[in-house]
């Protein structure tokens, strides 16, 4: 299976979790990543600047109509929902909060499932609510791959546990395992996309 995009949702404890995954990705990591991290509406773009310094990937706050590119990581801006269009561009809305959150993980995941179908990986990490559960289920129903941070290893286990209850067939991994699993999928995807001619 070749994967064209990854969506990640995190809440309480998310900065550390995202840092572990993002810095664990290989330099050759190609698959674009879209992230919703719950944060206060007044936050600035600290998280994308911080993670960008630590990674060889381009990490930035998502802009509206931005085309999704390889080797890029896009983070939803505070106080906006992030959606993926079927033409593989990003869009932002100020619609009402979903699961008390804007950005909401479910909103990103659901739109990503429509845009990428079976070529999508969805990941739910640490957090203290149940945002992401419905979206992860949508990803699975569309044939995509669902991954959940092992609740016992999460800083706050409620969100991954809720995702697991909604998607019992999801792959459950620790943060370090998620990074190496993604690296393997990335290598597989590349060898599918560019078969060596020898």
């Amino acid at each position: 299976m070749s994967y064209h995009a990854i969506v990640i949702g995190s809440s309480a404890g998310g900065l550390h979790a995202l840092k572990t995954i993002i810095t664990g990705l290989d330099a050759s990591f190609n698959i674009p990543v879209m992230i919703v991290q719950h944060m206060s509406p007044q936050s600035d773009n600290f998280m994308s600047r911080y993670l960008n310094q630590l990674s060889h990937l381009q990490i930035k706050e998502a802009d509206e109509k931005e085309p999704i590119r390889q080797k890029h990581v896009y983070i939803a801006p505070p106080n906006f929902h992030l959606l993926i269009e079927e033409d593989k561009t990003l869009s932002l809305t100020v619609d009402e909060k979903v699961n008390y959150a804007r950005p909401s993980i479910d909103v990103l995941f659901e739109s990503a499932a429509y845009a990428y179908g079976k070529n999508l990986i969805g990941i739910v990490l640490t957090g203290a609510n149940s945002d992401g559960s419905a979206g992860l289920k949508k990803i699975q129903e569309a044939g995509g791959l669902a991954i959940i941070q092992q609740p016992q290893t999460a800083e706050v286990s409620i969100m991954p546990q809720s995702a697991f209850d909604a998607c019992p067939q999801a792959i459950v991994l620790s943060l370090e395992e998620i990074a190496s699993f993604l690296n393997r999928l990335n290598n597989d995807t590349q060898s599918v996309a560019q078969p060596t001619s020898t």
Binding site: L83, I84, E86, S91
Partner: peptide
């Protein structure tokens, strides 16, 4: 309008 929003 952007389609993802309308669809949602």
């Amino acid at each position: 309008y952007n389609k993802a929003h309308v669809k949602r």
